[in-house]
Amino acid sequence: MTSILPLELRGVGFAVNGNELLADIDLRFEAVDRTMIVGPNGAGKSLLLRIAHGLLSPTAGEVQWHGPRASDPSALGTQAMVFERPVLLRRSAQANVEYALRCVGCDREVVTEKARAALAQTGLLSVAERHAFVLSSGERQRLALARAWALEPEVLFLDEPTSALDPSATRVVEEIIEAIANAGTRVIMITHDLAQAKRLGDEVVFMNRGRVLERAPVDRFFDAPTSQEAAAFIKGELLW
């Protein structure tokens, strides 16, 4: 399968009214590895993810997809995003997944089939007909994951998908993310939970105050962080 990866952010910055929220971001994401983006609140992690996904345009620098499929107009649905608070439509769980499939131009005959497959993979088949808004928080986030997964994205961006969930719901969501990654999707995820970063990640991107300070394989990052800020962050100290 041809790919849209690698993704490259070159000199990316984002400023609002002269306030630099992101600056000098140079990152290249190849087709392998699971990336965990960590850092204190206000580090610009969500902003970075939104820019990478194309929800926002950077005010400096550029975002480029270098893969052979990147310029293919039919490359819809090659990337997906799951938000901290799941954004669901006012319809049944299954209809939510079907909506996304239709948006990316999925063939009508297979929409239902694919949606049900995604619901089955996330353990939501029993609530497929229920209105999305009566689902529990955990189920809602799983539904958001099912919707993203149904698109069979090459890259999945996740913005703190478990921050509002209890431990058991978190575990289920982690298992799903694991399964999505194992099925060949490139995962780029923000997390506040360092243990989660260790569990799910291959590498860590550490951000502070709108800049990337460190990028390292998970083990090395936690054992021997090179920057002072990262060391302090891992110890749970406040960063100023």
Binding site: H53, L55, A80, M81, F83, V87, L89, C103, V104
Partner: peptide, 20 residues
């Protein structure tokens, strides 16, 4: 406002957004 990010994420066109 609630759905803007989702629409952008799914690359929904103007007509599709209004319909939704």
């Amino acid at each position: 406002e609630e759905y803007d990010a989702l629409f952008r994420s799914l690359r929904v066109g103007t007509l599709g957004v209004v319909q939704t």
